[in-house]
């Protein structure tokens, strides 16, 4: 199952709820303002890090770069994704839960 998050973790509780309900083996894609959750040294870093043992987390590079962030500033273990990878994730998962 794929979960998508497009809101900043500072703005809504989408990230926290998603990680609370995501089960082992699920994938989480961070895009648009959701990318802020992928960055090092934020208030949410420890939450994201602890989730990485169970779920795969991806971040959309185009949204990262638009906001002035670089891939070398994301938490270790988070994978980068291009738009094509976004499509593959959607196609390869049985269902998609969008945490709006």
């Amino acid at each position: 199952m794929l979960h998508t998050i497009n809101k900043s973790p500072f703005q809504t509780n989408a990230l926290e709820s998603c990680l609370r309900f995501a089960r082992s083996g699920h994938s989480v894609l961070l895009f648009e303002d959701g990318i802020y959750a992928a960055l090092k040294n934020t208030r949410f870093e420890s939450l994201v890090k602890s989730s990485l043992t169970d779920v795969k987390i991806y971040v959309l590079v185009a949204d990262l770069e638009a906001r002035g962030m670089r891939t070398d500033n994301i938490i270790d273990g988070i994978k980068t994704a291009e738009y094509g990878d976004f499509v593959d994730l959607v196609a390869n998962n049985k269902s998609v839960q969008a945490w709006l």
Binding site: A62, D63, E65, R67, G68, M69
Partner: peptide, 9 residues
């Protein structure tokens, strides 16, 4: 934030 680059979006 500096270095914003929106080419990709």
């Amino acid at each position: 934030k500096k270095d914003q680059s929106t080419d990709g979006i």
